[in-house]
Amino acid sequence: MLITRLKDKETLLSLAGGKKVFIINCHGCREVYFPLEEAAELQKELEASGSVTGSITTDYICNPENMKLRLEKHKDEIGTADAVLVLSCGVGVQTISEYLEDKPVYAACDTYPQPGFQGVTPLQYDCDQCGECYLNLTGGICPITACSKSLVNGQCGGSKNGKCEVDSEMECGWERIYRRLAQIGRLDLLKCPTQVRNFATDKEVAE
């Protein structure tokens, strides 16, 4: 099981407040608990301030081909939005982010693991269910799974010709992140405060 939980209000407002957003809700696979009510409430609030250009509510947004068709249908609404707000697990956010490569794509949820079956997502992207989703700081590319050291404060000195020191077939995750942030005009995010990982989060959820 996975649990996706809405990030706190303050974070969500800093992402979506005063911006035109397009919302994508993933009701997910059967293995994901999705915060239906809270998500609906958030959307209502954002709509009341007149800043939602459109929305999709569906399942398996991590299926790239399926998702591509749906996004095509909403091309204009997405085009007029400043950002796309995705309510899903980390895999879904990364799928959307890869497809809408010149649009800021933000994760509205954190993803936590729960004991049990982990879902049947077509895993082209990986979510480590770390419970403190970094995708909003890293252009929708996960530093936990795309970097072999899971570094959250930038590139180490081990990248050569764009490849990771551990695996010469693997692209350096932080070079990908840098390129993507440059593409969406958000290199300023690299100046965010020092990130210190919190490995206690899954326990907090269980409590």
């Binding site: 930038g154 840098y178 020092t194």
Partner: peptide, 20 residues
């Protein structure tokens, strides 16, 4: 790493180290 083939990414990291 000044002669890195991704020197801009290195400079961004350097800035974070200074800030820290």
């Amino acid at each position: 790493s000044p002669c890195s083939d991704s020197v801009d990414v290195q400079l961004a990291k350097m800035e974070r180290k200074v800030a820290a």
